[in-house]
Structure formats: C-alpha cells, structure tokens
C-alpha cells in the first residue's frame, strides 16, 4: 500500500505542477513560459529542497513516462486527417529530410568531436534531433553515451518547442506545413507535441516529419559516423 501511495503521490505532484504552469501560461499568454520546462525546473528544485533521490522520483513517476507511448500513437490521427493532401508531397518531403538529416548528423558529430575529443558524446549529439527511443537504440549500437543523448534530445526538443515557430515566423516561414515539417525534423516528439496545440496541420506535418527523420537517421547514421571516424583517424 505504501508503494502504491508513493506512486500516486509523485504522479499527482507532477501533473498538478504541470497543470499549474499550463494555467499560468494560458493566463499570461507568454511563449517562453513553457509548462514542460518550468515543471522540470520546479521539480528539480523540490527534489533538492526535500533531499529526495532522483531514482525515487523516477521509479514512482514511470507511469507518466510510459504514457508517452500511447500519446505518440495518438499523433497518427492528425496524420490521417492530412493523408489525402500529403500523398503527392511525401516524396519531396522525404528527399528534403534525407538531405537535412545527413547534414545535421555530419555537422553535429564533427563539431562535437573537434571540440570535446570524445567519441561517445559526439555520437550522442549527432543523434539529438530524433525521437528518444530510436536515438537511444542507435546510441547503444554505436557505443555512444545514452545519458548525454537523452539530455541533448530534451535540449533540442525544448529549443524547437520554444523558439521554433516564433523564429520561423520572423524569417517569413509562415505556412503551417513548413513550420510543422521544420519543427518535427529538428525537435522530434517534444517539439511536435508543443506545436500540435496550434493547429491540426502543425500536428500532422510535425508527426510526418518526425517519423521520416527518425527512420532515415536510423538507417544512415551508422554508416556516416563510421565513415567520419575513418576520415578523422
């Protein structure tokens, strides 16, 4: 009973804090007041304040993390709604995302390797643009550092979630389709979840882009990173 009680306690706290920030954001209408980011900061502060071990929090809040999986399945709905309008375009989207995914893996890996001289970290940073489960699987396959991958994925996700749409608006990228594809490709599920609140088109193209990007990166990144290491050594 004690065990069940603590699961309930940590899940309720997480949801309440998150909902609190959602309400606050709705009232103040500020983009930077991202509920995800501020919930993370608040919970870290609370854990440190009450000297609660992270593992205690993690094991008791696992259900919330697991719920991400059915939520990802739900992203298939906006995808379905846009299916008819996408059919003629998905070839060109795939070509574009193959180019962009290759470039981002090459650039991220090279820069990180030159600066840190650490192979593990470089692999992790190279894979940060795709959805967590795939990125972690490839990181393991290429002997990268899984903790860094998880960390970099959240950073990339938050960046796209917070800055993505405002920045794209600023440079004249105004179509919902372009914004959705860009955020889905650069900031995976986290970015897509955030922009899904804007319109169903954002959600649909974001989901499409994140699926294609993740699939392509899973296929090409082992070969690219292997080739880069041969060239560097």
């Amino acid at each position: 009973m004690v065990f069940f009680g603590s699961i309930l306690f940590f899940c309720m706290i997480t949801i309440l804090i998150y909902q609190g920030f959602v309400k606050l954001q709705n009232r103040l209408n500020q983009v930077w007041l991202n509920p995800m980011l501020f919930s993370v900061i608040t919970i870290i502060a609370l854990l440190m304040w009450f000297q609660i071990d992270y593992h205690t929090y993690q094991t008791n809040s696992q259900i919330i993390t697991w719920l991400l999986q059915p939520a990802v399945v739900a992203l298939g709905y906006p995808l379905y709604q846009q299916l008819h309008s996408m059919r003629s375009q998905w070839k060109s989207i795939t070509i574009l995302l193959t180019i962009s995914a290759s470039l981002v893996v090459i650039i991220s890996f090279l820069f990180t390797y030159i600066i840190t001289k650490e192979y593990g970290i470089s692999v992790s940073i190279a894979l940060k643009s795709i959805t967590t489960p795939i990125a972690l699987a490839i990181t393991e396959q290429l002997n990268g550092n899984q903790a860094v991958t998880a960390f970099a994925i959240i950073l990339a996700g938050l960046f796209g979630a917070l800055m993505g749409v405002p920045w794209l608006q600023l440079i004249g990228v105004k179509s919902h389709k372009a914004q959705g594809i860009a955020v889905g490709a650069a900031s995976h599920v986290l970015g897509t979840a955030t922009i899904s609140q804007l319109s169903f088109q954002h959600a649909a193209y974001g989901s499409l882009a994140l699926i294609i990007s993740a699939t392509i990166t899973a296929i090409i990144s082992p070969a690219i990173i292997h080739q880069l290491m041969v060239m560097l050594s």
Partner: peptide
Amino acid sequence: HGIAMVIITFVTTWLLLTFVGWTVQQQE
C-alpha cells in the same frame, strides 16, 4: 562539457529548423 554540448545542440537545431522550414516555404 555542458556549455559546448548546449551550444552545438542549439546551433545545429537552429540550422536544421531554418534549412527545412525555409526550403518548404520556398516550394509553397
């Protein structure tokens, strides 16, 4: 390695966003 990791992640994410968003917008 935090600062290097954060900067590289932000810069490459920003490049990716800009490249993909801008290209699709041009097609549109």
